[in-house]
């Protein structure tokens, strides 16, 4: 019964919060209207029948978000320095082929978003057969260091959350 009304509780909650933010009010009418929108959004997504991700440890997500925010801030500064150095700097950009243990599709999507959103690294292509991903790195001095960073910082956490 509960599953039929609210197939995706987190998504519906997010929609309600978005609605209230957009309306800039916490009035009863807006909450009711937002709930209706959220309910229909949940039903609409259920009609698409997406693959349901299994989240084992939801609280690790907060840990991951904090980690990503700090890393993005530092790499912002690092890339800003590289841009300001201009042409005097020797070229260190390069491609990197990274083996991954992660197989869950939602987890891979999150990893791709994290890596691309971080300035200085960009996710280019995932090979599902071999489980490798092609990444372009702006400041590639030591291959192994980057592989270790991504595998130990993000992949381990994502594995804990999803598998």
């Amino acid at each position: 019964m509960m599953r039929q009304i609210l197939p995706y509780p987190l998504l519906s909650l997010g929609m309600l919060i978005l609605w209230l933010l957009l309306q800039q009010s916490l009035g009863l009418g807006q909450i009711l209207l937002g709930s209706v929108v959220a309910l229909f959004a949940g039903r609409a997504l259920a009609a698409l029948q997406p693959e349901q991700p299994r989240i084992r440890r939801p609280f690790k997500i907060i840990h991951l978000m904090g980690l990503v925010a700090v890393d993005v801030l530092w790499s912002n500064l690092a890339v800003a320095r590289i841009v300001l150095q201009g042409r005097h700097r020797k070229q260190t950009a390069g491609f990197l082929l990274l083996p991954l243990e992660l197989r869950d599709r939602s987890a891979l999507a999150i990893l791709a978003c994290i890596i691309t959103a971080t300035p200085g690294s960009a996710w280019l292509e995932y090979d599902a057969v071999r489980g490798t991903v092609l990444i372009h790195v702006l400041d590639l001095v030591d291959d192994q260091e980057w592989i270790d960073t991504i595998k130990h910082r993000y992949e381990r956490l994502l594995l804990e959350i999803f598998q």
Partner: peptide
């Protein structure tokens, strides 16, 4: 950085500065 970098794959890192922090 978008205007300065030499190759496309380097330039793709530049706009994320503006869109993140």
């Amino acid at each position: 950085g978008l205007a300065r970098f030499d190759s496309f794959y380097q330039r793709i890192h530049a706009p994320t500065l503006g869109t993140s922090f």
